[in-house]
């Protein structure tokens, strides 16, 4: 499933809404999650999962092609942990 198919599905389920509003709704949700993580916040969606930011320490890396060492700065990366309910559903166990 891709973004446009998700939008189409929500539009089909909500025939009273304009397609462009459904697009804005779906985009707002994803945008809001990214904005939160860009501020260093967590987004916890019970049953689905939680988006958070993890810190990666600075390290000395190596260019695998040339073997040259490079200093890699500390950075923050997005992380997702699957919620318990979804994990169970993936394995055929409902509530």
């Amino acid at each position: 499933m891709i973004r446009s198919e998700l939008i189409q599905k929500i539009a089909d389920e909500n025939p009273h809404l304009y397609q462009r509003d459904v697009e804005r709704i779906v985009n707002t949700i994803f945008e809001e999650i990214i904005d939160a993580m860009a501020r260093g916040d967590r987004v916890e969606l019970r049953g689905f999962g939680a988006f958070s930011v993890k810190k990666r320490d600075a390290r000395t890396g190596r260019n695998p092609r040339t073997g040259e060492t490079v200093e890699v700065e500390e950075k923050h990366v997005p992380f997702f942990k699957t919620g318990k309910l979804l994990r169970d559903r993936l394995n055929g166990r409902e509530e």
Partner: peptide, 14 residues
Amino acid sequence: SENTLTRMDLSEAV
């Protein structure tokens, strides 16, 4: 300073 957003915050944004 870490805040936690929930479904409520997402629906508020919508």
